[in-house]
């Protein structure tokens, strides 16, 4: 594992907002082609960390390299080499399926012919032929999610960041969605995913759990369950939160 190529390197990342420390000396690596789960309760500092990794926020201190580039000086190069999908799916409702694909491919600098080729491929792969000319608002939620993910990786990024991509989606669609995630990972795209469904954490290659700005656990789901003597990731999570609360009280 340690010999594999690192696409995200984080050393002692600190982010302060005024007097509030959102990220407290985070240190971790993410390997190429890995599905990396980024877990934590709301307000634990996940969103801040993702924003820093995507080049939207500058860290207060620490070293962060994403896709081989430095977040302090090369955020533009980072942006070209990553994809991003938010929990809102972020498609334009008043644009058609085809237009959404073309627009997002266009802002990543793809040429006219490339865009056309990608668009055909994507529509065919998702089986959306009959929907291609329809407006996004006419599409069912499950399709939106798959389309949003496909669009997030339309420019073949090194890493794709998924911010709670499955919230509000039914379990069957969630399973299908994870199949797409595995496929992308198999094609060498590193997947960095946040979720609050603990069963989904089991699908990740490795999981990091954040609490109060700190990473309190980072390992494969199997190892985590072993070391916490837990049956599921849910139990691991509860155990961690309980420990954290106890230490806060002391």
């Amino acid at each position: 594992m340690e010999n594999r190529e690192k696409v995200i390197i984080v050393r002692d990342l600190v982010k302060d907002f005024g007097g509030f420390r959102a990220n407290d000396h985070l240190t971790f690596d993410v390997y190429k082609g890995e599905v990396f789960g980024f877990l934590g309760a709301n307000g634990a500092g996940k969103t801040t960390a993702i924003k820093i990794l995507c080049g939207l926020l500058k860290p207060t201190s620490g070293q962060v390299r994403v896709a081989g580039f430095d977040v302090y000086k090369q955020s533009n190069l980072i942006k070209k080499n990553i994809g991003y999908m938010s929990q809102k799916f972020s498609l334009y409702e008043d644009l058609t399926v085809s237009e959404n694909i073309s627009f997002y491919a266009g802002i990543y600098g793809l040429g006219f012919r490339e865009i056309k080729k990608k668009r055909m491929e994507l529509i065919q792969k998702l089986g959306l032929e009959s929907y291609a000319g329809k407006l996004i608002k006419e599409l069912p939620l499950g399709w939106l999610q798959k389309l949003a993910f496909s669009i997030a990786i339309v420019h073949n990024p090194d890493i794709v960041f998924l911010d709670e991509p499955t919230s509000g989606v039914d379990p069957i669609t969630r399973r299908q969605f994870w199949m797409m995630i595995y496929e992308a990972a198999a094609n060498g795209i590193t997947v960095f995913v946040t979720t609050h469904y603990m069963d989904e954490a089991e699908y990740c290659d490795r999981v990091s759990i954040m609490a109060d700005g700190l990473i309190v656990a980072l390992d494969t789901p199997a190892n985590l369950k072993l070391s916490f003597r837990a049956k599921s990731m849910n139990e691991v999570f509860l155990e961690l939160v309980r420990n954290k609360n106890n230490s806060n009280q002391q």
Binding site: C54, G55, L56, N76, K79, K80, I82, Y84, M85, S86, Q87, K88, F89, S90, L91, Y92, E93, Y104, I107, Y108, G109, F161
Partner: peptide, 13 residues
């Protein structure tokens, strides 16, 4: 709609 987030993450300035 959250599309601004995606635009800001994109290479567009």
């Amino acid at each position: 709609t959250g599309t601004m987030e995606v635009l800001l993450v994109s290479p567009l300035k």
